[in-house]
Computed example of a mutant assay.
Amino acid sequence: MRTVKRVHPAFRDDIGDLVTRRPVPGPAIGHVGAFLFLNHHGPQSYPPNNRGLPFGPHPHRGFETVTFILEGELAHTDSAGHSSIIRAGGIQWMTAGSGIVHAEVSPADFKRDGGPMEILQLWVNLPARLKMAAPRYVGAQAEAIPSVTADGATVHLISGEHAGAKGVIESLTGVFLSWVEIEAGGSVTFAGLEGRDVFLYCARGMFHVEDAAVAHFHLAELTPGDSVTITATEPTLFLFGHAAPIDEPIVAHGPFVMNSEAEIRQAFQDYQAGKFGVAEIVEA
C-alpha cells in the first residue's frame, strides 16, 4: 500500500482578480513524473458585468492540458478549429503537440450574469516521440463523463479504467485521470499503481491515506506501492491520476515544454513565424 511521503501546500499566485493556487511546481517539488503543473482557480464568485477569465489567445507546444470545470463555464477556441463552451462538471483535454494557440475565457452570459467559478488545469507531459504530434481537443460535458459510485465515493472517469468503467478520453500515453467526490465516511481504493507516477491533490475538504491527513489546497506525495486507499470524514473532492514515468529531460520555458533548450528556441521561432495559427475568442 502507498502511504503519504510528504504533503505540499498550494501557494497563492493570483492572476489579477482571479484567485489562483499552485501546488506544483512548488519550492519542494518540481513535478510529479508526467504531471508538470496545476493551477487551481477559485473557488470564488464573480459579480454581474465582470471581465471573466483572463486567458486570451496564447501558444503551447510539447504537452497536454486537462481542465476540470468544477463550477462556472469555460469557453475554448483554438487554432486547430475547435471551439466549445463547457459547463460545471465537464472537462477539456487538449493535446498541444506540435503547436497550438488557444483561448480560455468566460462566455458572454457568465460575464453578464456572474456566478460561482472554480477551475483546475493540469499540464501533462508528452514523451519526445509525441511532442510534435498533431494537436487535438476534446471537450466533454458532465453528462458524458462515466462515473463509478461505491462505498460513499464517486469516481468521475476522465481517462483510463476503474471498476469496469472506461473514461471519456483515450490518452495517447495511457494516463489515468479522474476527479473523485467522497461523502463523510466514504473510501475508495485504486490499484495497479506499481511503477506509476501518482498525482493526488485535495481541492475541497480533507482526506486520509492511512494515518496521514491531507487538507484542501494540498498535494500528497506518495511512497511507492501497488495500491492506495483514500478515506474521508467530511465531504471531499480530489484529483487522482497516474502515468508511466517519462525518463527524459524536461526543459520548460513559459508555454512550451520540450527536451532541450534548442527545441524551446525553435518553438518560439515557429510561434513568432505564425506556424501555430490563430485562435479567435468565443463570445457567444
Rank of each mutant, 00 (worst) to 15 (best):
G89A: 04
H102P: 15
G97T: 14
G89H: 02
M94P: 14
S84F: 00
W93Q: 03
W93E: 02
M94Q: 06
G99K: 01
V101P: 08
G115S: 02
D109T: 08
P116N: 03
A96K: 04
W93P: 11
Q92H: 06
I91W: 00
G99W: 00
V101N: 07
K111T: 12
P116V: 05
H82Q: 10
G115R: 02
S83L: 15
G114R: 07
A103M: 10
I91T: 08
G97E: 11
I86Y: 00
I100E: 04
I85D: 03
H102V: 13
T95M: 13
I91D: 03
E104P: 13
E104A: 06
I86H: 00
R87W: 00
I91H: 01
E118D: 10
M117Y: 06
I119A: 03
T95E: 12
D113G: 03
M94N: 04
G90T: 11
L120K: 02
H82F: 05
E118G: 13
G89D: 06
T95L: 14
G115Y: 00
G90L: 11
G90I: 12
A108D: 15
R112D: 09
L120G: 01
S98M: 14
G114F: 13
G90V: 12
I86G: 00
F110T: 09
M94S: 07
K111I: 07
I119Q: 00
S106H: 03
I91Y: 01
E118T: 11
V101H: 05
G90K: 03
H102L: 13
P116Q: 04
D109M: 11
K111V: 07
R112A: 14
D113V: 06
G97L: 13
S84Y: 00
I86V: 14
I85S: 06
G90C: 14
L120W: 05
H102I: 13
E118Y: 06
G97A: 10
A108S: 15
L120C: 09
L120N: 02
H82R: 09
A103H: 10
P116I: 04
V101Y: 02
I85Q: 07
G90P: 04
H82E: 10
I85W: 00
W93R: 02
L120H: 01
A108E: 14
S84N: 15
L120S: 06
S106P: 10
I85T: 14
D109V: 10
G99C: 11
D113Q: 11
Q92D: 11
W93F: 00
D113T: 05
I91M: 05
I119C: 01
S98C: 14
A88V: 06
A88W: 04
Q92G: 08
K111W: 14
G99D: 09
A103L: 11
P107K: 09
V105S: 04
L120R: 02
A88S: 14
S98F: 05
V101M: 05
G89L: 08
I86D: 01
R112M: 12
L120T: 02
K111R: 13
G97I: 14
R112F: 15
I86Q: 01
I85A: 09
P107Q: 07
H102R: 10
Q92M: 12
W93S: 03
